[in-house]
Design a protein around this nucleic acid. Structure first.
Length: 727
DNA sequence: AGCACGCCGACT
DNA sequence: GTCGGCGTGCTC
């Protein structure tokens, strides 16, 4: 009919590239395409997977129209998910095609899993019986289908026995349904004993998860208050009514312990989703999430884009964690997108943290979010006794960075055969190297940062872009030999100092540049938990949810790092980090100590940490943000200009700034003030835009970018918008 | 984002 | 004389 009338059907398709709108494709007659279908379409010289979208085909030159190649045999992307893509695109000012691309990151999953060959017993008997054959028949007698290797393994016989029987027609081959990647969780499996406070909180969350309806609950509980047990009850409630659950975890690759705890509660592990998943497993999980077979996913931020068929709850664990923020391509904060996802899907969202973000606290205060406080500590977990070491009064000896007070405490801890953790959030040996003769400082040629000496690797490394070079012997400026001096400490240097004081102790350095990658790191963390180290010197990596039962001393080497770096979130971040780190001690209930080296013990962050009075800190910080119109009151955004050549990026950034609409509402900071960095081979400039009134910063940025000269060639412009309240 | 087309340097 | 660098422009 279409052919006769000359009007074949046209449908928009979102293709995985930075297109501002879906492209139009012709639908071949009889092809079952509907909005949401995942389709294969020609795009330029190649074939890509795209998502059939809503609306009519648009007005495209009919000569350009090409036909959809095929529809994948795959559950369609739901309308809910398509609205989610559109919303994220508008909110983040990213092309919808790039957002859609995040949904299509498991290409192999669009085709059904090829069925496994299985064997089932027939009525035929073998010509001769042997003990091996007897065993195989015994196992297969129940009529279940077995895989060839599975049966051989279970019967303890070789594959040739099975093959022999199959050849004689004793087994017939059948198609096995795809194996589930994870066993289904049982909400009744390991119901925990909850304290009164926990039980009350759990009941509240259970109620919300047990019916339809959007809500956001901030689960705010001190370290060791048992937040996880509490939100597991919400998970159980959602599972009981047949809903799928997503638990977002920052950096899941390192948190094996979480999967174990989940197993203890639900009798099986959740599907885990993160970037270094093996492709095959990735595809199976994607597919089975879409088909509803996987009930619970624990994953990194990208799990938000899995095609759940019936999602009924999202938990964002450690909701304050900066790892939730994606800072390339599409700039988004998964915590906020999770809230919006719940809003669109009409189900509850739980944000859990011992140190909530200021944004979430403000949202709770204003009544947009519910807030549950777990104040009492659970079972035998005790917080350490915290003390500040005033570095002006108890300074380190010359050439060192550890106060005698801290060194003494380490010694005492060693004597008790317990573990110490020294925390310093700085990788490498020394953050700055300079020439004693001419004052030359080693700086990254591409960025605005100093080169950090890594003595173990014998390199100077830029922590921004990874630029590195061997440590030279002579100053490149004045040529003087052997007069380069390392300034300030990194973890390697602290370990060296510790070795000097305690040569017999087993000291280990933990940081992200540990040789051997994530796997090695996981092993080392386990070894430490088993007591195979006395002193651990680590970066923020040690702050994340690991339990070290024998750790009874935590020393913060330089608590002031990051307090004065100009970041509007500096105080918040420091507070969160120090809370997390000091919470590593005393998890076994043993008496433990936290010593915090600082030059400003009167600083509100230090006082909050030492006194344990976080309420005072939050009140103060929220008032401060409001006064200076910083997020979440005023709005902050960055325009990121990137190019292969530094000059190009700089030039375009300048042009953009000139294009900024004159306004008393917004202030733009130009290239001169914007730190330059090199990421993935591209020089990036950030233009900061600060909204001091309730202006729509998105509209402003849109106008600014539209007015400015169009970037040519390899120059790209992206926008990073800070979270706001969007409910 | 990918990919091809296009125009300038060192090589089988 | 060709292979290959990445600059530029396009994709329904």
């Amino acid at each position: 009919m279409d052919k006769d009338s000359g009007t074949s059907r046209v449908i928009p398709v979102m293709v995985p590239m930075p297109a501002e709108r879906p492209y139009s494709y012709a639908v071949p007659e009889g092809m079952p395409v509907a909005p949401g279908s995942i389709v294969r379409v020609p795009l330029g010289p190649r074939q890509v997977a795209g998502i059939a979208w809503d609306g009519d085909g648009g007005t495209v030159d009919p000569k350009k129209l090409r036909p959809i190649e095929a529809v994948f045999d795959c559950p369609p992307i739901s309308g809910e998910m398509r609205r989610f893509v559109e919303w994220i695109s508008t909110y983040t000012l990213s092309p919808p095609g790039m957002v859609a691309r995040m949904l299509l990151r498991a290409p192999g999953a669009f085709d059904p899993e090829p069925p496994q060959q299985g064997l089932r017993l027939t009525d035929n008997r073998p010509d001769r019986m042997t003990t091996a054959r007897e065993r195989a028949l015994e196992l297969a007698r129940d009529g279940q289908a077995w895989t060839r290797s599975g049966l051989a393994h279970a019967a303890g016989i070789s594959l040739s026995v099975i093959d022999g029987l199959a050849k004689q027609g004793v087994f017939k081959t059948v198609e096995l349904p795809p194996q589930p990647v994870v066993a289904p969780p049982d909400p009744l499996y390991g119901r925990p004993e909850l304290s009164d406070g926990q039980a009350e909180a759990a009941e509240h969350l259970r109620e919300q998860a047990a019916r339809d309806g959007f809500s956001v609950t901030l689960l705010d509980g001190v370290t060791g208050s048992g937040k996880t047990e509490v939100y597991f009850e919400a998970v159980a409630a959602a599972l009981e009514r047949g809903k799928q659950v997503l638990i977002l975890i920052p950096e899941i690759a390192l948190t094996q312990a979480f999967l174990d705890r989940f197993h203890d509660r639900f009798g099986s592990k959740p599907a885990d989703w993160h970037s270094d998943l093996a492709p095959k497993k990735r595809e199976r999980i994607w597919r089975q999430v879409a088909e509803g077979q996987v009930r619970v996913v624990a994953g990194a931020r990208s799990a938000l884009f899995l095609p759940f068929s019936d999602l009924g709850l999202i938990v964002v664990d450690e909701e304050h964690d900066p790892a939730y923020k994606q800072e390339d391509r599409v700039f988004y904060n998964a915590r906020d997108m999770a809230v919006k996802r719940g809003h669109l899907g009409n189900f509850p969202v739980v944000l859990a943290s011992a140190t909530p973000s200021i944004e979430s606290r403000v949202n709770a205060q204003s009544g947009r979010y519910d807030r549950i406080v777990l104040s009492s500590r659970y079972a035998d977990a005790a917080l350490p006794d915290l003390k500040a070491i005033d570095m002006r009064k108890a300074p380190p000896e010359r050439g060192g960075f550890l106060s005698p007070v801290l060194i003494r405490a380490i010694g005492q801890t060693l004597e008790r055969k317990e573990q110490s953790l020294l925390f310093l959030n700085r990788r490498g040996y020394a953050p700055l190297t300079l020439c004693r003769v001419c004052g030359h400082r080693f700086q990254c040629p591409d960025c605005s940062s100093w080169l950090v000496e890594h003595r173990f690797r014998k390199q100077l490394i830029c922590h921004h872009c990874g630029h590195n070079r061997p440590v030279p012997e002579a100053c490149p400026e004045c040529g003087t030999l052997d007069h380069l001096v390392a300034c300030g400490p990194g973890v390697e240097r602290i370990a060296e100092e510790v070795d000097r004081h305690f040569p017999d102790a087993r000291t280990i350095v933990l940081s992200s540049d540990m040789l051997g990658g994530v796997k090695r790191l996981r092993l080392e963390l386990e070894a430490i938990a088993d007591g195979e180290a006395d002193i651990v010197v680590g970066t923020q990596l040690v702050a994340k949810g690991h339990n070290f039962p024998a750790m009874t001393l935590v020393g913060v080497v330089d608590a002031d790092i990051g307090l004065s770096n100009g970041d509007p979130r500096a105080a918040e971040r420091t507070f969160q980090l120090l809370s997390q780190v000091t919470g590593r001690a005393g998890r076994s209930g043993r008496k433990s100590l936290g010593l915090i080296q600082t030059y400003q013990p009167e600083h509100p962050v230090m006082r909050a940490i030492i006194s344990g009075d976080s309420e005072a800190f939050y009140e103060r910080e929220i008032a401060e943000r409001e006064r200076s119109s910083l997020p979440p009151f005023g709005r902050l955004a960055a325009i990121i200009v990137s190019a292969n050549e530094r000059k190009e990026a700089e030039g375009h950034a300048r042009a953009l700034r000139l294009a900024a609409p004159a306004s008393d509402v917004l202030e733009t900071l130009g290239p001169a003030e914007a730190p330059l960095s090199l990421l993935a081979g591209r020089h990036r400039f950030r233009l900061l835009v600060h909204g001091t009134r309730r202006a729509d910063i998105q509209a402003y940025l849109r106008q600014m970018i539209a007015t400015a000269p169009k970037p040519r060639g390899s120059i790209r412009v992206q926008v990073d918008i800070d979270p706001q309240s969007f409910l």
